[in-house]
Nucleic acid binder design. Sequence first.
DNA 1: ATTAAGATTGGCT
DNA 2: GCCAATCTTAATA
Length: 196
Amino acid sequence: MARLTRSWFDRDPRELAPLLLNKVLVSRDGPTVLRARITEVEAYCGSTDPASHAYRGCTPRNATMFGRPGHLYTYFVYGMHWCANVVAGAPPDDAGAVLLRAAVPIAGLDVMRARRWTGRTRESARRDIDLLSGPAKLAAAFALDRTHDGLDLTRGAIGIYDDGTPPPGSPQQTVRIGLRAGRGDREPWRWLTPSV
DNA sequence: ATTAAGATTGGCT
DNA sequence: GCCAATCTTAATA
């Protein structure tokens, strides 16, 4: 498996996003190894994109987006969830990122289950396919939070790898999810690996 | 100082 | 399909 490099991430988020499909997110924590194949992503384009956290310029919260491509940008939403982005390339003083929206678990499912599902979770809701089937689910299963904001994906314990599986030749493409009307909700910048 | 909105999720009708 | 949960951030006063 080849780890993706800094220069590989240095592309416009709309180019980078579909290339991330079928890549493998890997987290190593001592004996624990988590692996998952990325299947859904969204591109966010900084100052030109009303839906982007960077639309109104650099703030303490989004500063990582203005930094180096290939780093992790994590943010807190709805008072309870974390989501994870990969910082993409952008023009000088601008920002871009790709939101990791979903993945298929490959290894470390037990750890993912323990992090995702408390005793309160209904048994019928505990399906492996739903372990990473949303941006906050993925972040929770990989334990990504404030402490991972700015983390370098090209070095260290967490990275993205090419295992030889190419991105889908014809990815599914739709408008982005969860955006307010008129706030970039018409841009078709969501890509998915076709389910079959 | 106050406030509105948020790149979501899971349980319930 | 509807809606509550939960709290940070940034904009406004």
